[in-house]
Design a protein around this nucleic acid. Structure first.
Lengths: 226, 226
DNA sequence: TCAAAAGTGTTCCTGTTACACCCATGA
DNA sequence: TCATGGGTGTAACAGGAACACTTTTGA
């Protein structure tokens, strides 16, 4: 940090945190967007975010945004990277530390505040154009998450605590955006042994009731899923 | 960015850039460290770094550090992440955007300036304790680079423009820190077809001369090497 | 002719792919 | 009894792992 001062001028750079919050609803991968009110971006959609506070970490700032917008905490959150094109913000020099979060769709209650014109989930397939470099952030997150499905158990962060193997299967397909052979997929998943039967079964549907499973651990593990 | 101002206080946070510069010398993975002079860290080793300038990007700041310390440009450089523990710098709130670079060992001339007590390559196996959170940064870089060897051609960034298959093989072993079966490794590498014979051979050594190879492309490609 | 590193094949085994039918339930 | 999604096996193939000797050169 301060070994070489590269410049003698004082820095006048602000630090913001943005959060790309993903979930899956109705077999579609969704990202949470807010609609802005302020002048050059009136009615433009963007990722939720804001300036950092003096005494917090960027991760805590991201958790706070998440809590405010979705009411959820205790979700998967990962630093995506820092975005610092000098022209990315028309108001002045602002660099943004971006995070992404993966949340299960149940238990989320969107909070609209009067700071924003609107707050909505959008399908990543049909995004509007976004403020700043936020489209790029979403793009980078998607690539990261899709890759990470292949070698970790992160998928737990999108699922309820009990789920059927079919839900698990469909969740992979939705996030990856392509289909996976059912029998091969299930064999692999069961063999890798990161999900176990919960002992319960689905009931009340007009077909054979599915066995419910749960994750052995709800924290990041490295497993070769794909 | 600025959609929600999380705080009404003004930010007083500085932004620094640190660079973990790696190379391989004498079959050892080395990282470049500088020895500090300033008070609470007098004679402590650290990664080279410094405060960002107002009008540059963090990547340019990292390239500048790299150029100043090693004289090299046009090397592999990647953003590692942003480190922002409020207590990481005893002088005040400084967040650091860390980069890592991979450089071939020939063509590098270390520059000592009077800002530092010393500048040296250190084996990652025998690092001294480092200032700030720099040991952690080195650790994270190592994990990232080792993983990346498995699915990309980044290894080009550590090798000279022409090299033997044995050098390539040894390079993988040194960075990964474990050995790889020679025949299986070479079969895979040749099959993947990201290196091609340059047409030249090594000469002047007391044994069978090796064929020289070069990379088809000296930019990041995704290939399943391991 | 010796020392040293270069270069080269085969077998075994494991894991991946492709593929289709019966099962259990509620309506 | 029917419609719906749940659940299951096998054969062919590809790729990974283990393993040792011959070749070419300079000294």
């Amino acid at each position: 940090m301060t070994q070489v001062k590269l410049s003698t001028e004082e820095q006048n750079i602000k630090i913001a945190v943005d959060a790309a919050i993903f979930t899956v609803q109705h077999d579609e991968l969704m990202v949470l967007l807010i609609q802005m009110k302020k002048k050059p971006f009136a009615n433009v959609w963007a990722l939720p975010g804001g300036l950092m506070e003096q005494e917090e970490t960027t991760e805590n700032a991201a958790r706070r945004i998440l809590k405010i917008q979705t009411g959820v905490s205790d979700v998967y959150l990962e630093q995506l990277g820092t975005f610092d094109d000098p022209k990315r913000d028309p108001f002045g020099r602002v660099i943004s530390v971006a995070y992404f979060a993966l949340v299960p769709s149940e238990g989320v209650k969107l909070e609209t505040t009067d700071k924003y014109a609107d707050v909505q989930w959008w399908s990543v397939q049909k995004l509007p154009s976004l403020a700043y470099d936020h489209s790029y952030m979403v793009q980078v997150t998607l690539e990261r998450v899709r890759a990470k499905l292949g070698y970790t158990n992160v998928i737990w962060s999108l699922l309820p605590s009990e789920f059927t193997l079919s839900q698990l299967h469909r969740m992979y397909e939705v996030v990856l955006g392509h289909s996976l052979d059912k029998r091969n997929f299930l064999r692999k998943v069961l063999h890798l042994d990161f999900v176990v039967p919960s002992g319960n079964k689905v009931s009340g549907e007009a077909h054979r009731p599915a066995e419910l499973y749960k994750f052995k651990q709800k924290k990041l593990q490295y497993v070769e899923v794909l």
